[in-house]
Amino acid sequence: MEVIIGILEEGLVYAIMALGVYITYRILDFPDLSVDGTFPLGSAIAAVLIVKGINPLLTLPIAFLAGGLSGILTGLIHVRLKVRDLLSGIIMMTALYSLNLRIAGSANLPIFSKSSIFDNPLLNRIIPDYFRPYLVLAILLIIAAIMKLILDIYLKTRSGYLLRAVGDNDTLVTSLAKDKGTVKIVGLAIANAYVALAGSIYAQMSGFFEVSTGTGTVVIGLASVIIGTNLFKRMPLRATTSVIIGSILYKACVAAAISFGMEARDLKLITSILFLLILVVSHDRKRRVKANA
């Protein structure tokens, strides 16, 4: 039982991040590597604000905005300075490493003893003891559901339609007399806002900020998106729902690898093999190859 709860918890936190990656990778067709920096950016902001005594719930919108800002910068580098998409992400990711250290003030900032969205006096008063083991999961479920719904609604707005159009057919956007660069920046802003939000939740769940937590975030995000959207391609599920399930399945795979006695040091290798398998199964690579040709 603990195993399943653990997988669901981890999966849901990363699902919020994966929703962001879904926007950039699937909708905008933009491989945004800055995610490796924005995830710990959210963690750093949450940890610092909580140490300063700010209400933990407030750290979520603040991290969300900061992530958005970082996305805007990635977008500006790409659109205005005309740097290639992959490179703009790498530039932001590298810059954010130092920035995160600056924000947190140290490489490791614990918040075990402070209140968090999972553990605060108010919650402790109203939540009965028997529900405690499921509390984190329940809170995550609520946040993930809200964030998914917001994204669903947004994608149906005018701005959301334009976003999808840029990824599919950007001449259409130009013919509508819209600047596709601006649309891309908006997409990157929303995506990174989601990622930073996930980071801020993750810091509160694990109880500390550590500068290296971001490493590999983009891989988890991409794997979740690809697992989700491909596995449930033919099912009547919204893409956002598939991404959330994909993230949980991905975490389940990793947990399975560990419980089969795989050594932790092989984990990244397993991750990449799994990633490759899913790509092979889902045909995804062909689309990529054509798109790059």
Partner: peptide, 19 residues
């Protein structure tokens, strides 16, 4: 278990021990 200096892996190792 060895986390090879990766915090994410460290968290996973800890979760695995707990479960």
């Amino acid at each position: 278990e060895n986390a090879s200096a990766d915090t994410g892996t460290a968290a996973q190792i800890a979760d695995n021990f707990i479960s």
